[in-house]
Amino acid sequence: MQKLTTLTSTVVLLPIDNIDTDQVIPARFLKTTEKTGLGEHLFEDWRYDADGSPKPDFVLNRPESKRSAVLLAGANFGIGSSREHAPWALMDYGFRAVIAPSFADILRSNSLKNGLLPLILEPAVHLRLLEQIEEIPAAQVSIDLASQELTLPSGEKVGFPIDPFSKTCLLNGTDELGYLLGFEPQIIAYEQRLGEK
C-alpha cells in the first residue's frame, strides 16, 4: 500500500450528495483482472459523451484536475457496491484523498486499504472549503495525517477523524494482511476451541 503522510494539493470539486459507485466506475469496467488502468474510466458516464468524447464542462476533463490529488464530494460518498475498483479508479486517476461530510461504510474501508484517505469534514467546514475553492480554483489545501489536520486555503486549520489503526497503516504504508497473519496462533486456538480438527 502507498503510504500517506502529508499532502498539499488543489481540490477538484464534485459537491454532489450520494454519489454511488456505479458512477465512480460503471460495472462494465469491472471485468478486468487487474487493479490498474481504471483511472481513464473514472466517472466515465458523467465524463464522456455517447460518442466517447470528453464533456468539456465536466470537472475531471479540465487539464488542471489531472494534477490534483484531492477530490471534494458531497455527503454519503460511495454508496452502493463493494467494488474496490472504485478506490482503484480514484487512485489511478491521481487522487490520494477524498473530502466529504460522510462516506458509505464499504467505500471508506476499501479506500483505507489502498492508501486513499477518506477525509470527513463537518458540513459547515465542508461548505467553507467548497466556497473558498469556488472563489479561487487554484487554491490549495494541506493535509497532515499525523496531526489529523487539514489546512484550508484561508489558513484555517481543522481536525478530522480517523481510527488509530488505519492511520498507522496509512502513515507507514503497511498492508493489513501482514498484521492479520500475525494472529495465526489465535486463529488456530479459536478453531480448536470450537472443537474442529
Binding site: 463493494s82 464499504i106 486499504k113 493489513e176 494482511l177 492479520l180 497473519l181 486463529i187
Partner: peptide, 21 residues
C-alpha cells in the same frame, strides 16, 4: 459485503479486521 482486499484477507486467514458496528 467486503472489498477485494478483504477477500484476500479472508482467503488467507479465515478472519477479518472489523470495528464493531
Amino acid at each position: 459485503g467486503i472489498g477485494t482486499s478483504e477477500v484476500e484477507h479472508v482467503l488467507a486467514t479465515q478472519a477479518l479486521l472489523q470495528y464493531r458496528p
